[in-house]
Nucleic acid binder design. Structure first.
Length: 732
DNA sequence: TTTGCTTATCTTTTT
DNA sequence: GATAAGCAAA
C-alpha cells in the first residue's frame, strides 16, 4: 500500500497510522475495500476486532463523515471498546460513529418512527420475564393455562413465539419442525399468539423481537424512511454475523438502500445462538443477498499458542459440518493445556482458587484470568470459594440485576408513571400491600380502567378497607411525580423512600444487601435523562449484577457471554457429562453440534494458558452425588495433547471423607482407557449404559438382543446393531 | 380472600 | 437451593 498518499493521522503516539505495517495482507484488503458488500470470514483470534477498528479509522481517514458510519456488534460494550481503540488511531471523531447492538439501534430508530406503525414513541420494552408474565396472564384469560398438564409452560411459549418471529415461519411449521409433541395445541397456541400480538399493540408494548420486526416493517413500508436512512448511514459494519438471524439480515439489506456498503464479519464455526433463530447458514447466504460480494478469509490465529490451538483444532475437526477455513497459528511456544480431574465440585473450586492464587502471586493481572462454564449455576461452588479466599471477581451471564425482585418493584413504579394502565406493573405493586391479593388487585385495576384519571383515583381511592390508606399513599406519590418535572434523579429517591418499608417487611433477613442494589440502581439511573430511556436501556443492555468497578477482579463467565473476549489464562470448568453439553441439548444432533462449537468458542478464548477441569462426581438434582464421565468433547482430544494436573498439597487436607478410596483420577484422563474396556461377548452391558465405539463414537445401549448382539443408539450416527464378538465397545 | 405452609420440580445459553 | 404450584387455616 503506497503510504505517502495518506495524510498523516494524529494517533496518540504522534505517529501517523501505518496500515500496511499494522495489518497482514488479508486484513489490509478488508480495511481498504471501502465500497460494496464485503464478507469477512474470520477465524477465532484472527484479528477481527483489529480489522474493524482499522476500517473505521480508514473510513474517517478517507474523509467519511463519522456520523455516517454504523458499527453493529453483539454487545454495546464491544462497540464501545472498538470505537475507543479507533479513537486512539484517528482521534475524537470516532465518538460520532453510531455503534451498538441491533436491538439498541432499532430501539433508537423506533423512538422516532414508531408512530408510523401505530405505536407511541414512549412504548415499553418487555424483557423475557415480562413476556412470560404477560403470556401467563393471557393464557389464563383464554382459559388455556390449566387446561392440561402437558400444556407448554410460559417459558416454552415465549421461546416458541420468538422462534416463529425470528425465523420467519408460521407457528404451525415451527411446531412441526421443533415441537411435534405440541401439535395438538396448535389451534390454542395460534389463538394465544394472536391475542398476545394484539395486546402488545394496544398497550404500547414491544418485546425484543418486535424491536426488529417493527423497524423492518417501517423500512419496508415507508420508502421515505428507507431513503432517509440510506443517506444518513453510508457505511454499515456488522460483527459476529454468524449469530444474526434472517430478520437482521433483512434489516441490513433494507438499510443499505442505495449504496450496499456493507461489511459483515463472522465465523461460521463459532455460531452458538441458534436458540435465538440464528443459523450459521445465514453468513454463507450473505453473498446471495448482496450481489457482487467480495469474500475475504482471515485464517491466521494471533491469539493462542500452538498447543492450545492443537486442542481447539481437535475439537472442531470432529464437527459434522466441515467449516470454511483452516486456522494456522502464528505464535510459537507455550505449554500443553492442563486437565484437572477434581473429585467433586468443591474440589474443582479449590483447584481453581489455588491456581488463581498462584497466578496472582506470579504477577498476572486479575483481569487476565477467566473461568468459563456452561450455565450460570455451575459457578456457585467457586463463587463461595473465591469469596472466602477474598479474591474479587465479576460474573458475567446468569442472574441479572434487573431480575431481582426488589429492582423490578422499583422499575414497575416508573412504568406506571409512563403508563398508569400497565396491568402487570400495577398487579405487582398492588400485591406488595398487605391484605391485597390477586382478587383485590384485579378489582382495583378494573376501577382504574374505567376512570378518567387513574392516578387521581388511586390517590383518593374510595374504600374503608385496611389497605386503602396504602393505596392512597401510593397514588399520592405517583400523582406528585407525574405532575412535577423534577427529573428522574429526584423521582428515584422518592420512590426508594416509599419502597423502603416494603423492602424491610418483605426481606427481614437480607434487606441491607438488597438496599445496596437499590443504591446501585439509583447511581445507574442518574446517567439517564428520563424514565423511558432508563427502562429501554435496562431492557436492552442489562448491567452486571455486581458491577463493583473493581479493577482487579477475575472474570467468571458463561461460555456464551465470553464470546469475542480473550484472556491470558482461561479455566473451563464442569466439563462433565450432565453439565456440558447441556442435558437438554443431547437429544438432537444439531444441538450437540452447537455445543461443540460452544466448547470451541470457550477454548479459543485463551491466549497463553488453558485449563480443562471436571468433577468426577456431580450433584444431580434430587439424586444426590453421582459419578460423572468427562464431557464427550474432552474425550475426543487425544491424550497426548493434554497435561494432567495434580491437586495442590494443601487441597488434599480438605478432601471429603465420603469419596471412595478405589476411585483413581487417572482412570478418567482421556487416552487412558484400558481400565474400562470390556472383553468381547461379555455380559457386562446393560440397557441405558453409555458406550463408545471406535468408529461410531459415543452412544447409549438401546437393547440387548442376545449374548452376542446388542443395539446401540449412537449420538451422531443413529441406531446400529453390533456383533459383540467383532466390536470393541467400551463403557463410558 | 389472603396467607402461610408443604411439596414437587427443575434448572442452558441472551438481545 | 430457589421457586412455583397446591392445600388448609385464619
Amino acid at each position: 500500500m503506497p503510504g505517502d498518499e495518506h495524510l498523516p493521522m494524529a494517533n496518540l503516539s504522534g505517529q501517523p497510522v501505518d496500515f500496511a505495517r499494522d495489518l497482514n495482507p488479508e486484513q489490509l484488503e478488508a480495511v481498504e475495500t471501502l465500497d460494496g458488500p464485503v464478507l469477512v470470514i474470520a477465524g477465532a483470534g484472527s484479528g477481527k476486532t483489529r480489522t474493524l477498528v482499522y476500517r473505521v479509522a480508514m473510513l474517517i481517514h478517507k474523509g467519511v463523515d463519522p456520523g455516517q458510519i454504523l458499527l453493529l456488534t453483539f454487545t454495546r460494550k464491544a462497540a464501545a471498546t472498538m470505537l475507543e481503540r479507533a479513537s486512539r488511531l484517528v482521534g475524537e471523531k470516532c465518538q460520532e460513529v453510531q455503534g451498538g447492538t441491533f436491538h439498541a439501534f432499532c430501539n433508537h430508530m423506533l423512538r422516532r418512527y414508531a408512530p408510523r406503525i401505530g405505536y407511541p414513541n414512549n412504548f415499553t420494552i418487555m424483557d423475557r420475564g415480562d413476556v412470560q408474565d404477560l403470556l401467563r396472564l393471557l393464557a389464563r384469560q383464554l382459559g388455556l393455562a390449566g387446561s392440561s398438564r402437558t400444556f407448554p409452560k410460559k417459558g416454552a411459549l415465549a421461546t416458541i413465539f420468538s422462534k416463529a418471529a425470528n425465523s420467519h415461519m408460521d407457528l404451525v411449521s415451527i411446531l412441526e419442525n421443533h415441537y411435534p409433541h405440541l401439535l395438538e395445541y396448535a389451534a390454542a397456541l395460534e389463538r394465544l399468539s394472536n391475542v398476545y400480538n394484539q395486546y402488545k399493540k394496544s398497550h404500547a408494548l414491544m418485546d425484543y423481537d418486535d424491536l426488529l420486526i417493527n423497524w423492518r416493517d417501517i423500512l419496508l413500508e415507508c420508502e421515505d424512511v428507507r431513503r432517509w436512512i440510506g443517506k444518513r448511514i453510508r457505511y454499515i459494519m456488522v460483527d459476529e454475523y454468524q449469530d444474526t438471524n434472517k430478520l437482521q439480515a433483512e434489516i441490513v439489506k433494507l438499510m443499505a438502500f442505495g449504496h450496499n456498503n456493507v461489511m459483515v464479519v463472522g465465523d461460521d464455526s463459532q455460531s452458538i445462538y441458534s436458540f435465538r433463530g440464528a443459523h450459521f447458514k445465514n453468513i454463507l447466504d450473505f453473498p446471495r443477498l448482496f450481489q457482487g460480494t467480495k469474500i475475504i478469509k482471515l485464517e491466521k490465529n494471533y491469539r493462542s499458542t500452538q498447543p492450545n490451538l492443537d486442542c481447539t483444532n481437535a475439537i472442531i475437526a470432529n464437527a459434522r459440518q466441515k467449516f470454511t477455513k483452516r486456522l494456522v497459528a502464528c505464535r510459537s511456544g507455550g505449554g500443553l493445556p492442563g486437565l484437572y480431574v477434581a473429585r467433586d465440585e468443591m474440589d474443582q473450586a479449590r483447584f481453581v482458587r489455588q491456581k488463581v492464587e498462584d497466578l496472582l502471586t506470579q504477577g498476572i493481572e486479575p483481569t487476565e484470568v477467566a473461568v468459563l462454564f456452561r450455565a450460570g449455576f455451575h459457578s456457585y461452588a467457586l463463587e463461595t470459594e473465591l469469596n472466602t479466599a477474598g479474591i474479587p471477581f465479576i460474573k458475567r451471564g446468569g442472574k441479572r440485576l434487573v431480575d431481582a425482585a426488589h429492582i423490578k418493584d422499583m422499575l414497575c413504579i416508573l412504568r406506571i408513571l409512563i403508563n398508569p394502565l400497565d396491568r402487570l406493573s400495577c398487579d405487582r405493586i398492588f400485591l406488595l400491600i398487605e391484605k391485597i391479593g390477586p382478587k383485590t388487585a384485579e378489582r382495583i385495576f378494573s376501577n382504574l380502567l374505567s376512570s378518567q384519571d387513574p392516578l387521581d383515583l388511586l390517590a383518593h381511592y374510595p374504600s374503608k378497607a385496611k389497605w386503602a390508606a396504602h393505596i392512597k399513599e401510593l397514588g399520592a406519590m405517583l400523582k406528585a411525580l407525574a405532575e412535577s418535572a423534577t427529573g428522574l434523579d429526584h423521582a428515584m429517591k422518592r420512590i426508594e423512600s416509599w419502597y423502603t418499608p416494603y423492602l424491610k417487611g418483605l426481606y427481614p433477613d437480607d434487606w441491607p444487601r438488597r438496599q445496596q442494589e437499590l443504591t446501585q440502581l439509583r447511581i445507574l439511573s442518574s446517567r439517564y435523562p428520563d424514565a423511558v430511556s432508563l427502562l429501554s436501556d435496562l431492557a436492552i443492555d442489562p448491567p452486571e449484577r455486581n458491577e463493583t468497578y473493581q479493577r482487579d477482579s477475575i472474570c467468571l463467565s458463561t461460555m456464551h457471554s465470553a464470546k469475542g473476549l480473550e484472556w491470558k489464562v482461561v479455566f473451563i470448568i464442569s466439563l462433565a457429562e450432565g453439565r456440558f453439553p447441556a442435558p437438554a441439548s443431547t437429544q438432537q444432533v444439531d444441538a450437540i453440534e452447537e455445543e461443540r462449537r460452544l466448547f470451541y468458542v470457550a477454548a479459543t478464548r485463551a491466549k497463553d494458558q488453558l485449563f480443562f477441569c471436571y468433577p468426577a462426581f456431580i450433584n444431580q438434582s434430587g439424586a444426590g452425588l453421582l459419578p460423572a464421565r468427562p464431557c464427550r468433547f474432552l474425550e475426543e482430544i487425544p491424550g497426548n495433547l493434554l497435561k494432567p494436573c495434580k491437586p495442590h498439597e494443601t487441597a488434599r487436607e480438605g478432601h471429603p471423607a465420603h469419596m471412595p478410596d478405589r476411585y483413581d483420577t487417572r482412570a478418567c484422563i482421556p487416552g487412558n482407557t484400558e481400565h474400562n474396556e470390556m472383553p468381547a461377548g461379555s455380559s457386562g452391558f446393560k440397557v441405558g449404559m453409555r458406550v463408545r465405539h471406535p468408529i461410531f463414537g459415543p452412544g447409549r445401549i438401546a437393547n440387548i438382543m442376545d449374548a452376542k448382539r446388542i443395539k446401540v443408539m449412537f449420538d451422531v450416527s443413529g441406531e446400529k446393531t453390533l456383533r459383540l464378538d467383532f466390536t470393541e465397545l467400551s463403557i463410558i
